[in-house]
Design a protein around this nucleic acid. Structure first.
Length: 484
RNA sequence: GCUCCCUUCGUCUAGAGGCCCAGGACAUAGCCCUCUCAAGGCUGUAACACGGGUUCGAAUCCCGUAGGGAGCGCCA
């Protein structure tokens, strides 16, 4: 661990990594659904670990018992699995570096708390939430930074005993050293420098004895052997606190990289008013994990690779040096583009499973396959398949506006011939079109548009021949005969 | 209020002083292909936030301005 140099600056250089394999982690708190921004940092950490044969660890930051819920954890785990981000160790895959829930790491925290107390790097603070809030307000009101004033910083032993005797519960604050310059090299932002005098003494242990974020997060990274931390930029200005904690404990410091936050199209932080913001919502809407992954992969990151990348290709293409510094705007239209590509890449089996929720029941495997194959090129989301289910399997569809005119222009002999061919050949477009052409001399759009309209009711849609094949026997005849 | 981060086409970005009157992808427009849509092919529109410096030369370096974001919590 680097100490202070002669100028009083502490350099926090990343320890040398000899094996080249990065140990990364994703550390969500189970207080809600997996947000897109978090999903992206999870992806980046996963890719960084997989790149050089490292390890990807899942740690659950559930120190806030009030807000942490088992149900939320289940959802987060499910969403990560859905995204394909498999972890090497986590709450469901414990090993000797665990446990991987912070709520179960109290014993380890206690040891580090003691160490800090022995070094007098921390002190008990008896200020009440009310007092602290009042002080904050006063500071903000008079245009000063809202920092802890240090009320309990230099209480005597006697005073402390007195407070305890009054039954006041103490939280623990870290004693931030004065006059220090804290420096580190951020993986994405480069050299950073902060003054310790700008940092107030912060809480590392709550009055109820549980560890606070700055502490548990830093201590766990160190004790779990994390070498690289890719996290949201909202943590950038707080990194010096964690550096101070690790220094006081003599623990190894990971390399930190702070990725930009994801913004909405209007530049404001992505929130509900922009629409869906969680993995779960996109998943429920029928989005494909590959699509979301590819969109997230490009947000704030660039690689030379174009097109839909699978996870392995992403691992190869990912480069932390190409993480952008500017915040990225989440564009639903771009996600749709990836979704379209992902959908169209689906194998017949995958497509059938994907569309299962909107497919009619009671059909044979081959009938479903024919249908899915026919409509897939025209489907982006499962919703898009719904109308075609009705058109193909339902009663003969009504003509769209303007359709009658096109039917009329086909001529009197068109549909009798087409219907008869359909009756003889089944749902065979070739035979039907040939008969109509022979009867009327029509070709091209003149020939096919009346057929498309009569058969599907619409002028736009999937390729006609496969669509016809997907229809129940006799459907073509019944639909054409309506106009004969 | 203080500290920190950010600012290149609609979007994601390439760009680390001359290779850039700024390149790519997607989106978008037009054309071709075509029974429609999609796919595919071709062509096009479109950006260095602003102002000062430094330099023979700046998207790139420096200063400032504007705009956006974050942090300063017994939340993570």
């Amino acid at each position: 661990m680097t100490g202070m140099d002669s100028t009083g600056a502490a350099g926090f250089a990343a320890p040398a990594r000899l094996d080249g394999g990065a140990v990364t982690r994703f550390a969500p708190s189970p207080t809600g659904e997996l947000h897109l921004g978090n999903a992206r940092t999870a992806l980046f950490n996963y890719l960084l670990a997989r790149r050089g044969g490292g390890r990807f660890i899942l740690r659950i930051e559930d120190t806030d018992a009030q807000r942490s819920q088992e149900a939320h954890l289940a959802v987060v785990l499910e969403d990560l699995r859905w995204l394909g981000l498999a972890w090497d160790a986590g709450p469901d895959r414990e090993d000797d570096r665990g446990p991987y829930r912070q709520s179960q790491r109290g014993a380890l925290y206690a040891r580090f708390f003691e160490a800090l107390e022995r070094r007098q790097a921390v002190y008990p603070c008896f200020c009440t939430p009310l007092e602290l809030e009042a002080a904050r307000r006063a500071q903000l009101g008079s245009g000063r930074p809202p920092r802890y004033a240090g009320t309990c910083r230099s209480l005597s032993e006697e005073q402390r005993r007195g407070k305890q005797a009054q039954g006041l519960a103490a939280m623990t604050r870290f004693r931030v050293p004065a006059g220090r310059r804290i420096e580190f090299v951020d993986l994405v932002h480069g050299p950073q420098s902060f003054l310790s005098d700008d940092i107030g003494d912060f809480v590392i242990r709550r009055a109820d004895g549980t560890a606070a974020f700055f502490f548990s997060n830093a201590v766990d990274d160190a004790s779990m052997g994390i070498t690289h931390v890719l996290r949201g930029e909202d943590h950038l200005a707080n990194t010096p606190r964690q550096l101070l904690i690790l220094e006081a404990l003599g623990l190894p410091v990971p390399s930190y990289g702070h990725v930009s936050l994801i913004l909405g199209p209007d530049g404001a932080p992505l929130s509900k008013r922009h629409g869906a913001t969680s993995v779960r919502e996109y998943r429920a809407g029928g989005y494909r994990p590959e699509a979301l992954r590819n969109h997230l992969f490009r947000l704030g990151h660039s690689s030379g690779e174009h097109g839909l990348l699978d996870l392995e290709a992403m691992v190869r293409a990912f480069d932390p040096a190409h993480l952008g510094r500017a915040s990225a705007h989440f564009d639903a239209q771009q996600l749709k583009v990836w979704q379209k590509e992902a959908a169209h890449h689906l194998s017949p089996d995958e497509a059938r499973a994907w569309l299962a929720p909107v497919l009619p029941a009671g059909l044979s495997e081959s009938a479903l396959s024919a249908f899915v194959t026919a409509i897939l090129p025209n489907v982006v989301l499962p919703e898009d398949a719904r109308p075609w289910v009705a058109i193909v399997f339902g009663p003969p569809p009504a003509l769209e506006a303007g359709g009658e005119e096109i039917i009329r222009q086909a001529g009197a002999s068109f549909f009798p011939a087409a219907a008869q061919a359909a009756g003889q050949s089944g749902n065979d477009l070739q035979a039907i079109a040939a008969a109509a052409r022979e009867a009327t001399g029509k070709k091209g759009a003149q020939l096919y548009m009346p057929l498309r309209l009569a058969l599907t009711g619409r002028s736009h849609g999937p390729e006609l021949a496969p669509l016809l094949k997907a229809m129940p026997p006799g459907a073509a005849h019944a639909r054409l005969a309506r106009f004969a």
